[in-house]
Design a protein around this nucleic acid. Structure first.
Length: 508
RNA sequence: GGCGCAUUCGUCUAGUUGGUUAGGACGCCAGAUUCUCAUUCUGGAAAUCAAGGGUUCGAAUCCCUUAUGCGCUACCA
């Protein structure tokens, strides 16, 4: 029980879950499962001003879709709860005060205006104001003020925050599983606020307290936390707690240019940045999701896992279980990875092929019904089996198989020019009459093929030319699956009808 | 500005103890297959390993410097 691996994913419910966050969660999950450990979900809602209704439910729903199960946490429960920081509010204050008593932190009474003033002054001199060991004595806090004054201010209800007190010339060192040894001089760090004047802790305090209380063994999080890690390490030390092992993940970058992948990039380049579609309750804006865009959850998981990690072999397709078996933090790359939508599409193509025809057909038939067609499941299944390999998404089914359901209304001009020559009409008329003579049963398609294979060479006609003109007549373009397969599925009546119509229309 | 992190084909990456024709995948191009399109298969182009210095018989791999990019620099997470 002592050294059990326990990791957590700790999002803040300020909106939909970003794909980078999903990857962070995935790596946490893989690491936990690989080591037979626990994967927890904690909601970090200490900033009341940024709370967005529905975000928490969205997060839970996202992981359900992705197939990543939490062992403990919000909506699941567990013995270390509550798992939502707003419900743990009372305890943070005690911990913050404990630090003040230990001389590791102090009260500060500076107002937001006063600090803004300081920053403006510094900026005017092209410097940066920092609340740290060099400036704190000149500011209004329990270090610069007398004990009586401090007590008087607190008792009179003056708003205050608690700041961490960094040592003057300490060296803070820690090891990161991905980045190796990291060393920072403490006098360069600013005295971060731990406890806000609204009675809530900041991320830094709440995070450390909760990770300690929830017995988190490894903290796997985004690189944006690396700069504040020295503070976190110092906090563990100040409390006298053992720090967890840290691993800071590289960022997911936008496909073009530089920088973090953002919601705007998705809108701009036309790919989802969120696992599920998100309806913003305030702006009413809708952001697309992987699920709604037709991605399979396994494909998203595989794609994300490989964006910055590989097992050292040339394998690229992994099931979730395989990822669990082969995952290792040490093999995560150190630098950010640009998101590649083409590769994402390729992954989905791979996974779509493993979905059964029956399952896809059931899904497709709903779409067909919506479009006003009512084919049987059997027929739809046959169509699916023929066109599946050409699709990357289930939604591609229609554009690759529409001709099985609707007659061509027009004929592609380019194909017409190339495949419908002077005598095509009369040749097809002759072929048509011969096709009509073939008995209309299950073997009609094969028989039709047999006939064509004989007829075309016998009349010294060009195979490609004739087959394509028939295709053009039936499909409306020179595209689609094997002609015989189309004959078979469409049947004699429909096939002949379409050729007949085409001859009449085109030869007009 | 300060601090931190990073830097191998267009993109994702392999390369863990210095000796490889620097490998794979996506994308791209070509060929093959087919009645077309797509799929599939085969092949090809594509990284002087950010740059410059060292160390060494030998460096993508070790050291230094520089450059560039990114991240953080809030009573946000």
């Amino acid at each position: 029980m002592e050294n059990r691996v326990r990791v957590r994913f700790a999002p803040s419910p300020t909106g939909p879950l970003h794909i980078g966050g999903v990857r962070t969660a995935l790596y946490n999950y893989l690491f936990a499962k690989k080591n037979n450990g626990d994967f927890l979900l904690r909601i970090e809602d200490t900033d009341q001003t940024r709370f967005v209704p529905g975000a928490e439910e969205y997060i839970i729903e996202s992981f359900k879709w992705l197939g990543l199960k939490f062992d403990e946490g919000v909506s699941i429960g567990g013995q270390y709860g509550p798992y939502k920081q707003s419900e743990r509010k009372a305890m943070y204050k005690d911990y913050a005060f404990e630090l003040v008593e230990k001389g590791k932190a102090y009260f500060a009474f500076d107002t937001a205006e006063e600090l803004a003033q300081k920053r403006a002054e510094a900026e005017a001199e092209k410097k940066t104001f920092q609340y740290d060991c060099n400036t704190r004595l000149g500011l209004r806090n329990s270090l610069s003020l007398s004990e009586e004054e401090t007590r008087r201010l607190i008792e009179s209800g003056e708003p205050f925050v608690i700041r961490f007190k960094f040592e003057k010339d300490g060296q803070i060192e820690f090891d990161d599983l991905i980045r190796g040894h990291i060393s920072v001089n403490s006098s360069l760090l600013d005295d971060k606020v731990l406890y806000k004047s609204d009675g809530m802790p900041t991320y830094h305090l709440a995070n450390i307290v909760d990770d300690h209380l929830m017995k988190i063994s490894h903290v796997i999080r985004g690189e944006e936390w690396l700069p504040s890690c020295p503070l976190h390490v110092s906090l563990y030390k100040a409390f006298g707690w053992e720090a967890p092992v840290f691993a800071h993940l590289p960022l997911i970058l936008k496909p073009d240019g530089k920088g973090k992948l953002s919601k705007r990039d998705g809108d701009r380049l036309g790919f989802p940045v969120f696992p599920l579609e998100w309806h913003d309750p305030k702006s009413g804006e809708i952001s697309s999701g992987y699920r709604e865009s037709g991605y399979l959850p396994q494909a998203v998981v595989n794609m994300l896992a490989l964006l910055g990690w590989n097992d050292g072999t040339e394998q690229e397709l992994f099931s979730l279980q395989e990822l669990v078996d082969k995952f290792s933090i040490e093999r995560i790359s150190k630098h950010g990875a640009k998101f590649d939508m083409e590769k994402a599409k390729w992954f989905n193509h791979q996974y779509l092929q493993s979905v059964s025809d029956n399952e896809l057909a059931q899904q497709y038939i709903k779409e067909l019904n919506d479009r006003g067609y009512t084919p049987t499941l059997e027929f739809t299944e046959k169509v699916v089996s023929l066109v599946k390999e050409r699709c990357s998404f289930a939604k591609d089914l229609w554009q690759t198989s529409d001709y099985f359901f609707l007659r061509p209304e027009s004929y592609a001009e380019k194909a017409l020019k190339k495949r419908w020559k002077e005598g095509t009409g009369s040749v097809l008329t002759d072929i048509l009459s011969r096709l009509s003579e073939i008995e209309d049963n299950n073997e009609w398609g094969e028989k039709a093929e047999e006939f064509l294979m004989k007829y075309i060479p016998e009349h010294e006609l060009n195979m490609g030319q004739i087959m394509n003109s028939i295709r053009l007549a039936i499909v409306g373009d020179t595209k689609g699956v094997n002609m015989v397969e189309i004959f078979k599925l469409l049947g004699k009546q429909e096939s002949i009808q379409r050729i007949q119509t085409a001859i009449e229309r085109i030869n007009l």
